[in-house]
Design a protein around this nucleic acid. Structure first.
Lengths: 239, 239
DNA sequence: ATTTTGTAAATTGTTTACAATCTACAACAA
DNA sequence: TTGTTGTAGATTGTAAACAATTTACAAAAT
């Protein structure tokens, strides 16, 4: 049988099995559960329990733990165990600062490299944000927001930037999920910012797109801070 | 015996043993060898061989591989093995773009938060760069350069930024080590840029420090590109 | 009462053994 | 020659067994 033909025919069926070992399965499943807050921050992850739950032995689970540790989603303590990472307020602030810088670059690059279809997709997302804003569905807005920014990050066409961005956002989610942040976010205002960002991107205005995205992230941080320090005196922003 | 006293007395002796498992030992040792180019890019890392070399079994080595994979230093292929990551020219360019953005933020924050002692240390490093520049020691310059930028990254006092920065730089080293880049770097010119950066930081000029650092990184990228495309037509810069 | 000490159980760290897959290469066929 | 097939060896994937450490808690001492 022709080798090339065989390969073409079966590749798409075999690929999932070829690529995914028990380690990556465990890793992705745990990552999903952590980011979705199914396993909340601070939780101790028991090797044997997780191995049993996933139907594998401890080896692959341990390897997945190491990867998640490097990704910043869990904290590994020798002889003590691994814990879903907890992100403090000051640390979250650090994350926002870095994210703002990365989003600035995303805006600049996306304004240069985005294609028409992606702009259309962004418009669809923003439209859904409008539709959902009055029905007060913070969770769906949160998901749309993630989709919006991830699409933008991909449109920047810089794989290093994309993975750095996702790394930061994933860790930031550890904090946002633990708070009321995404319900405290001013949805109508945030949606307006998204619209302005798409406009700048579509116009190919690198500088403006970068500035708007950076400002958007810093505004999110400010909204989060305001929501967390309700009646007390605000600490003056340092930046 | 008083518990607090005992803890204080022995902690510093025990700490290294408490903290480091065979996994982290293997991880750090491999990381060192990869970044120092002792193990060059593209090399296949054999589990059994490395385990034997380090005097441990395959388990800890496999776990270290997963962490290094997440850090971007190795590529893990199921049933094939792990390989020291190779960074292409276009990928390196992506790394420089991200690094430039991160260094911009580092400059801004360091200008606000650096302390006198750190400025003094920066001056010492720059002085050493001057001294060594005429003796053509590219390797020592390379080391000083790493020290300079890492100190600056620490002075920014943002742990997220620091680890993102180090992550990018480590991976970038995979590329720079594989090329003649650091000998092609125009050392006197680069040193002048470092001086200007320290001046701006010391003056507390956030904007200028950020701009100079971003420009410094992009200039490094340009120098690298120029060195790699010697006589042929230069591809016009996209940014 | 508070602290210390000791012991058993639970949990993690590491090694070893076995199964599955890939690689190299020889033998064979077209 | 060129390509296929098959087998042996090497290598990786997974599981299980064993060792070391921590944790929980009861008993004893101050």
């Amino acid at each position: 049988m022709n080798n090339l033909l065989k390969k073409k025919l079966l590749t798409h069926l075999i690929e999932p099995l070829r690529q995914h070992s028990l380690v990556t399965l465990a890793q992705h499943e745990l990552e999903r559960r952590i980011i979705s807050d199914e396993i909340p921050a601070g939780t101790k992850l028991n090797e044997a329990d997780i191995a049993a739950a996933l139907g594998v032995s401890r080896g692959p689970v341990r390897e997945a733990f190491r990867a998640l540790g490097q990704a910043g989603l869990v904290r590994v303590e020798k002889n003590r165990g691994v814990f879903v990472r907890e992100v403090s307020l000051t640390e979250a602030s650090d994350f926002y600062e870095v994210r703002a810088a990365l989003e600035g670059l995303i805006g600049k690059l996306a304004a240069q490299r985005i294609v028409a279809d992606e702009i259309a997709q962004l418009r669809v997302i923003v439209k859904k944000m409008h539709a959902g804003s009055r029905s007060r569905k913070a969770d769906t807005y949160f998901a749309l927001n993630v989709e919006f920014h991830d699409l933008l990050a991909r449109a920047a066409r810089n794989s290093v930037l994309l993975s750095s961005y996702r790394n930061v956002v994933n860790q930031l989610d550890l904090y946002r999920r633990a708070t009321i942040s995404h319900s405290a976010d001013n949805i109508p205002l945030s949606t307006k910012e998204h619209e302005a960002i798409v406009d700048a991107i579509e116009a190919g205005d690198q500088v403006r797109a970068g500035e708007l995205l950076t400002a958007h992230v810093l505004a999110s941080r400010a909204r989060l801070r305001a929501a967390l320090a309700p009646a007390s005196q605000q600490t003056p922003a340092k930046t």
